[in-house]
Design a protein around this nucleic acid. Sequence first.
RNA 1: GUGCCUGUAGCUCAGUCGGAUAGAGCACCCGCCUUCUAAGCGGGUUGUCGCAGGUUCGAUUCCUGCCAGGCACGCCA
Length: 562
Amino acid sequence: MSSSEISLSEQISAHIRGAILAAVDAGQLPKEISKEVPESISLERPKNRDHGDYATSIALQLAKPAGKNPRDVATILQSNLAVIPEIARVDIAGPGFLNITLNRASQAELVTTILKAQAKYGQSTGLAGVRINLEFISANPTGPLHLGHTRWAAVGDSLGRVLSAAGADVVREFYVNDRGNQMDLFGASLEAAALGKPIPEDGYQGQYIGDIAASLVAQDSKLTSMPEPQRVNEFRERGYAWQLGDQKRVLDNFGTHFDVWFSERSLHEGGSVDVAMVKLRKQGHVFEEDGATWLRTTDFGDDKDRVLTKANGDLTYFASDTAYYINKRGRGFDICIYMLGADHHGYVGRLKATAACAGDDPEYNIHVLIGQLVKIIEGGEEVKLSKRAGTIITLEELVEKVGVDAARYTLIRYPVDTPMILDVDVLKRNTNENPVYYVQYAHARIAGVLRNAQELKIPVGLDNFDPSQLTHDRENELLGALAEFPKIVAAAAEFREPHRVARYLEELAGVYHRFYSDCRVLPLGEEPVSALHSARANLCAATNQVIKNGLDLLGVSAPEKM
RNA sequence: GUGCCUGUAGCUCAGUCGGAUAGAGCACCCGCCUUCUAAGCGGGUUGUCGCAGGUUCGAUUCCUGCCAGGCACGCCA
């Protein structure tokens, strides 16, 4: 049915708009306000249950243009809304709020919608036809993934799922910085570790360097006796392969998968840099100065112009970034999303300016998310993370301590622009205090109820669902919460904020637990099976479907038992 | 110096077209399992929403200034 496409709240919203226009036609409100009426009337779910199922402040907004007292406007709308079948009652409160109470049975039809849609409930078409390149993590292949990467591994993966649910065609991409000085330093560090020599001045110091070196030598003992410069090259290339494979293994275990691993080398070898340079020159923002080649990014708000080719002829890292962006657009992506750490926020301006220099719309074609850094507290002290000192906490270590579900959930439930503090001791000691267990427990609890319902032969399913049975306040609250889900997912996609899904699930789980306390689902003792039992069991099934759909968007499991 | 992010309960944090009595978890106190999972529920306690102005019917939310903390400003990668 079409109501799976148009939610009840959207229908009500449209009804209110119709009621306003009808009041204008009837001469109850002045004609001038027609153009003040928003396309969609915003409804909110009041915190206080006495304020009905939905509330709107539209009368307050229209009062001024209408030249009337807000309460008078509200009164006019009230009588026009009272005739709508889905609405049981409309009350006027405070300065002119309209509090709308829905007909319970029509609200309960939502259960039918959810059970029919199943995994599709919550999906939308808001981003249909939009091709999105979602780049995240993009760690150097010179070391293990650490805590900062872990935040992106969780949030980026979840955002990919959310965008897909909103209808977008998403490609997840990991940019491999396999070119430049740091690769040579990496190779030299491995070689030094293998030969027992001191690590070079600017080399990599961590414990893992020795581990990789030992592993490489174990694979091929001839490595240490190779002549230079072949030896250091081999250490670099084999170390690169080893480290990249390790990153893939760790991410795979974390449930984060990429569609494309894009090598920076391939960008140069495949001619993408030349293509980009030609395109930029054609756009007219390239110039020569002091022997270098520049891109005039200041034409589009950047602080300073950027060098593409140095005076010595080498390409800058900026040239790679620019070519990479143009390459992405050339592959047909409408929107390129970058997820960067706070230490890269200085890049936002130049990335947007680069897009503009390439003739794109920086407001649409490119979207940069800046994630604040994650701090770690252990033993009451902040752990200073330093690659040099080797005091990094890796993704793998975090997962070993708290598990994939808890790690993912904890990292996703905060907006990325919030600097977050993780207390490792709390996570280690008290994993069941994590909100993820609260949500998962609700799912397991419902699954248990449904198993029991099956054993008791309670008729469940759409053929045995009578929506008029669901009249309890707790049932009403639960239905209201379930109705919110599609809006939450759509907003999470629009604002690129998957944490909204996590917060919603906590709310939904809470509403369910309260329902469970007050409303007995299954028959007690010898009590005969009634239509109410079936209706509630179906409500439980619908709730579990939504919890599962939500957890899927986070990449967190929905256990049948706990 | 310039720019970005942050400042909400004892702690960690939610709160985006400006709305009604500012919320959650943890922590603390008191209740609730001989019947669907107590990893749960109910009740109690906790706030100058950094500070000061402005916009208006109404500001934690929008604007300006200030204070505090974090991060970044290379022909490095």
